[in-house]
C-alpha cells in the first residue's frame, strides 16, 4: 500500500503494481448507487451485469466495480504516466462520492 486518499466518503487506496503503474482501490461506506454505471459508461465500453461490471477506456484504464460491496478497482494502462493514473482515480472517486451524496440513504 502506497497511499490512502479520502475523496469525500470514498477511500482511495493506491497499491503498488510495478514501476510504471499503480492500482487504485475505491471503497465507500455504503453500496454504490445504480446510476454510477450510467455515468461511467459515457464514452466508454462496459460489460458485465448489475452486480459486477467492468468499465474500459482503451489507452487509459479498466475499472472493475462491485456496487453492492461498495468496492471498485482501477487498473491503469502502462502507457499512462503515474501522475495521470492518480488524477484519473481521484476523478472516478469524485463521481462515486457525488452520486453517494445524491442517492437516498
Amino acid at each position: 500500500m502506497l497511499e490512502v486518499i479520502q475523496v469525500g466518503a470514498v477511500t482511495v487506496t493506491r497499491l503498488y503494481g510495478c514501476t510504471r503503474r499503480d492500482q487504485y482501490e475505491l471503497r465507500a461506506p455504503r453500496p454504490f448507487p445504480s446510476q454510477l454505471r450510467d455515468r461511467l459508461e459515457v464514452g466508454r465500453a462496459s460489460r458485465g451485469g448489475p452486480d459486477l461490471y467492468v468499465i474500459d477506456e482503451p489507452g487509459a484504464f479498466q475499472l472493475t466495480v462491485a456496487p453492492k460491496s461498495a468496492r471498485a478497482l482501477m487498473m491503469p494502462r502502462l502507457t499512462t504516466p503515474l501522475e495521470s493514473q492518480r488524477d484519473t482515480a481521484l476523478s472516478l472517486a469524485g463521481i462515486v462520492d457525488e452520486l453517494l451524496l445524491e442517492a437516498p440513504r
Partner: peptide
C-alpha cells in the same frame, strides 16, 4: 456465468486485467 459474462479478452497491451491481476 458471472465470470464468463465479464468477457475476458486481451486489451491493446495484450493483457487481461482481471481479479486485480494481469
Amino acid at each position: 456465468e458471472a465470470v464468463s459474462g465479464l468477457g475476458f479478452a486481451g486489451n491493446e497491451e495484450g493483457l487481461i486485467p482481471a481479479f486485480g491481476l494481469y
